[in-house]
Write a protein that binds this DNA or RNA. Structure first.
Lengths: 146, 146
DNA sequence: CTTGAAGCTATAGTTGCTAGAGACATTAGA
DNA sequence: TCTAATGTCTCTAGCAACTATAGCTTCAAG
């Protein structure tokens, strides 16, 4: 049996994050020791590693919740899991495209900065005037989230 | 003079976002009409466009605050603005690398999904076992934030 | 002059955690 | 065996960067 700290170390997840996952129902309520401390077996470790890995891959907690409920019922078709992964892929591809445009814009910005005064600074100028951009890197839903 | 709605349309920023920017001090307090509605001139539009553009480029509001204070004092050296842009570029490059690894992992996942039952689903399997990964797409500070 | 859109304030919710306070549990060393 | 250090507990609040809701007022078009 693992304490929460050991579990966290094993899965690469911080302790408060584990408690948070339990709180939102992503992990089941853990067994408790005589002194009320959480105890975990290896099923919990697997589940947490699954979550961690999916987070690494950019899945939202909602998507992970779906994937977990799928893997809890292994007799269904895997079309749903596939769909989730595919939509994740589409998202990643669009972010990739946007980031690439962004990168070239930033490169242009730093290359053009002649090291003079702000008044001549292309960084500020480019940011103030979108029409100076080489590429269109705008995006309706800003890519802030996730 | 523009109302807040027109300003938002012109700059591509939603109305509550403009009020939010004012609230956190990124935009100065707007003039008001007789009926207490905000009114903006073209300086406000320029400033908002600057913010929007910088957000598009992935700058945090804090970085934007710095850039704005730089552009408000155009007599300094532009080294500071340049440094902000450069550090932003470094960040973007690292995110780009990570996203690329991630994308190929997702591609592998969906390609390998045979369309059978969950029990055989590679999507679920790969998520449960990191050792099945082709690349290391892990990251200490998850790339969640911006 | 009326009606509907757009504006106002204020508050609370979102995602995915992270940080802090103050109390209890466990474990390693003297 | 005692003690000190570390780990864990609950609870609450905070972070970015908005978004949404409620209940009201103002404005512009027909």
């Amino acid at each position: 049996m693992l304490t929460i700290g050991k579990l966290g170390d094993a899965a690469g997840v911080k302790v408060p994050t584990i408690r948070y996952y339990e709180q939102i129902g992503l992990l089941p309520e853990a067994e408790r020791s005589a002194g009320n401390q959480r105890l975990y077996g290896c099923k919990a470790l697997e589940r947490l590693a699954f979550i961690r890995h999916a987070r690494d891959l950019g899945f939202t907690l909602e998507a992970i919740r779906d994937l977990l409920s799928l893997s809890d019922n292994p007799d269904q078709s895997c079309a749903a899991a596939d769909a989730i992964a595919r939509s994740q892929l589409v998202e990643v591809e669009s972010r990739l495209a946007r980031l690439t445009a962004l990168k070239s814009e930033l490169e242009r910005m730093v290359v053009q900065c002649a090291g003079g005064k702000i008044a001549d600074c292309r960084v500020i100028e480019v940011l103030g005037d979108h029409s100076l951009c080489a590429t269109d890197h705008r995006h309706p839903e800003a890519e802030a989230r996730q």
